[in-house]
Design a protein around this nucleic acid. Structure first.
Lengths: 346, 346
DNA sequence: CTGAAAGCGCTAACAC
DNA sequence: GTGTTAGCGCTTTCAG
């Protein structure tokens, strides 16, 4: 029965060295004589000693913990990224504190405050658009941070992500290339979310080149969930005119929308084309498989971790990591019905 | 420009009170005169003061952080639970440190050590089967913990979960009730995983009642992923004899298996019945929708959080929370082909 | 209800 | 290389 945990002082005493040496043996082992190192290690072993993180943090002002604030954990794309982040961080001896704000900027700020109070050495945020107070706090606390997922609408050098504008642009070009002219978008709120804005902008740009525009009634705002997709389809389908394609903001929405199509006996892609965004694993399991944009979520996690580690080490590292987010064509995007017909007629 | 963060001493000075009073004003506001409280609050405001968590932790031996170690984050069921856990904890002023061990017991131990070093006030673990060192450490550190997901194979009172045995038993009864006699299981490794064992046992119990048994070659061990399910089907289908139903350990596997069925033109449930476990959202999106067992993952998260808070507060609380995990029948489980035929013949 | 003072366990100069 | 010695910023007795 151990009444109280062993401290470094106990270790030092048992090893017959000073407190300082014991401390060094643990944190900078190559700055002590092999002999003392061995003694200390033996003592540690014997006592089952484990460092007290709080004390270490207080004295060294390093917590060996970083925090990541995600919009939600309910999207596999973020889960994947967290997984990668966590694994990589682990390799550096860092722990991960995670939180989510459910797409509410105010909530994000609260969460950040709580995290700051607990103390972390670095921060990972998703997206570039955050309440100004967020940036003030990171500055005030001198907290290194990396922005992930997006490189849109920002000057900040430490971003690990892709251009949502370009990705959406490329996808829309593809869509236009198939001959679609009645294009709808099912996205989330643009509030505090530059990804949604950038994608809208990218889509618009491609449409404009083809002489098209996005009709306001065909831009529907729905939650980034299966249910959101279902809702969106209902809204779109009950409208005056019907689009020939709907561009979804996430695969989750697209999958839900596809399911609603099935319920309503709308054939995809014959009656309606659908595209997603993220390329989650399920995207290839729909019937037909979903045409989408592949977001390198694992790589974002891994590189964000590495980049943050570099920042924390004071190595200002390379700037902005722009990853690729290619369109992956599968079965839900095809020529619109009217064109098929005319093609056949020729 | 703030060269250095304000400390409680600064606050006290500005407020014209002692360090002690300032401290109390923050942590036990009703033990100070309203006047001093107000002074302190004003000072805090003015200085933009934020507590230093490390110092607080060191002095009070409370970190206001709890850790949760999950098998993986790559299963929506865990993501959901984490979400609920995190939200609930947040309401109590606690942060969540998360980690995963990818179904490797040794890894879990390492992770726990790192977490212990960092310091947490409580711990959430998934399952009841962990390396003995895990339990030794929690004891040695006097760390309150709750075991989730399962109440099988354990004496430990602080569990929040369901009986995997019962759930599997109920499902198997249902399967047997449909007339299946050639039953296969696609599960994960039983190593360090009592859930898998309990489910096998429950399944066996139900089969035995019907005079059946599980043929060893029909127990396939595959990763808990889409791909795992695909693999399992291939293995099972290429074998000497073919089962009439396969019971999957997770919906992820079941969905992958279903997809492989489609690829191989195996009709479900005509040629083969399939069941899942978890009832993730996608389970109702397969074609036909998946018959599965509904695991109350959100509730597990919420109640685990509450229970842990009680433990931390020294309220030993109520014991073992046994939740319900009902079978949800959808379309992938039906009578086996031979019975259908004979039914028709009659 | 408040102030003073003693640590919490560790790191980081600083001399030796 | 190693020992000594200040703190890190806060909580918590203990008197008053």
């Amino acid at each position: 029965m151990k009444p109280t945990r062993a401290t470094l002082a106990d270790v030092a005493r048992l090893a017959g060295v000073s407190l300082g040496s014991a401390s060094r043996a643990l944190s900078v082992p190559d700055q002590v004589k092999p002999q003392t190192l061995a003694n200390v290690q033996r003592a540690v072993e014997q006592l089952g000693y484990v460092r007290n993180g709080a004390a270490q943090a207080l004295a060294s002002r390093k917590t060996h913990t970083v925090a990541a604030i995600y919009p939600t954990l309910n999207n596999p794309i973020y889960a994947d990224s967290i997984q990668a982040l966590q694994q990589t961080l682990w390799g550096y001896g860092y722990q991960l504190l995670i939180a989510s704000h459910e797409y509410k900027p105010a909530r994000e700020l609260e969460v950040l405050r709580a995290i700051l109070e607990r103390g972390v050495d670095g921060l990972v945020l998703v997206g570039t658009d955050h309440p100004p107070e967020v940036f003030e706090l990171t500055r005030q606390y001198d907290l290194p941070y990396v922005l992930t997922w997006s490189v849109d609408e920002t000057q900040y050098p430490h971003c690990v992500g892709f251009s949502n504008f370009e990705a959406a642009y490329a996808l829309a070009r593809r869509i236009v290339g198939f001959g679609h002219r009645r294009v709808a978008m099912c996205g989330g709120s643009t509030f505090g979310n530059e990804r949604v804005r950038a994608r809208q902008a990218g889509t618009r740009a491609a449409l404009r080149e083809a002489g098209l525009d996005l009709r306001p009634e065909w831009i529907v705002e729905a939650p980034f969930t299966f249910e959101g997709g279902r809702q969106a389809l209902r809204e779109l389908w009950d409208g005056e005119a019907r689009p020939s394609v709907v561009i979804c903001g996430t695969d989750l929405q697209a999958i839900g929308l596809l399911d609603e199509c099935r319920a309503k006996r709308i054939r995809v892609p014959e009656d309606l084309s659908v595209t997603g965004f993220d390329d989650i694993e399920q995207a290839r399991l729909t019937q037909p498989p979903l045409t989408t944009v592949r977001v390198p979520s694992l790589e974002i996690g891994t590189r964000a971790a590495r980049h943050l580690m570099a920042l924390i080490d004071g190595k200002d590292g390379d700037d902005e990591i722009v990853l690729d987010a290619p369109v992956v064509e599968r079965g839900t995007l095809a020529k619109p019905a009217d064109l098929r017909r005319s093609a056949r007629e020729q």
